[in-house]
């Protein structure tokens, strides 16, 4: 069990990892623990919960996908490869969108591809809020309010214009 936990945390060496995978394949009850650990992890992180039968459904769909039997030495256009890979991913994405009832906009949070350092940095982290002098904070507040009077999405949310600016003002006091 400790090995499973270590494997989950990415703390095993390559050969230990291999052993852990073989072990999980062999022992159904440990495989269930593995799923439970992930479920607990998801719950603690507040990730969207998947239905119990998620794995079964994805595996079922994957089995229905045509298996590509490419002749070993035949050269294949890279574009075709990319497209077929995308088509399979699209199938998974559709399933995920159906499964995650709470957030249909979120296509693949559970594909377990940890964003590596080489992935595109996200816009919000690049645009870190810069410390703005307090005198100018008030100035920005006025612009926020003036802007939000015209924003249809703000009108939809009803209370938003005050909330956002109250929040900005609080930033000044809090820092």
């Amino acid at each position: 069990m400790d090995r499973i936990s270590a494997f989950m945390d990415g703390e095993t060496r390559p050969h230990e990892t291999e052993q852990a995978i073989l072990h999980l394949k062999q022992y159904q009850e440990h495989l269930e623990s593995w799923h439970t650990f992930h479920l607990i992890g998801d719950a603690m992180r507040g990730d969207p919960m998947l239905r119990n039968d998620f794995t079964t459904r994805v595996c079922g769909r994957l089995q229905q996908e045509p298996i590509m039997l490419a002749p070993r030495f035949r050269w294949r256009k890279p574009l075709n490869l990319a497209l077929s890979a995308a088509a399979s991913l699209a199938a998974v994405a559709v399933i995920l969108a159906l499964v995650i009832t709470d957030n249909p906009l979120q296509p693949q949070p559970q594909l377990a591809v940890a964003p590596g350092p080489e992935t595109i940095p996200n816009v919000q982290t690049v645009a870190l809020p810069q410390p703005v002098p307090t005198a100018n904070r008030g100035r920005m507040n006025e612009y926020l309010m003036a802007h939000q009077e015209f924003s249809p999405s703000t009108a939809l949310q009803g209370v938003a214009p005050y909330v956002r600016t109250v929040s900005v003002a609080r930033g000044v006091d809090g820092r």
Binding site: Q124, V126, A127, P129, Q130, V132, P133, A135, N136, R139, M140, Y143, L144, A146, H147, F150, S151, P152, S153, T154, R164, S167, V168
Partner: peptide, 21 residues
């Protein structure tokens, strides 16, 4: 919606660049 505000340069302009709220 996107709003553009254009004003004469204030005495102490805030730093240029991107921020968010």
């Amino acid at each position: 919606a996107v709003s553009i505000f254009i004003e004469p340069m204030p005495e102490s302009p805030p730093p240029a660049g991107a921020t968010y709220q």
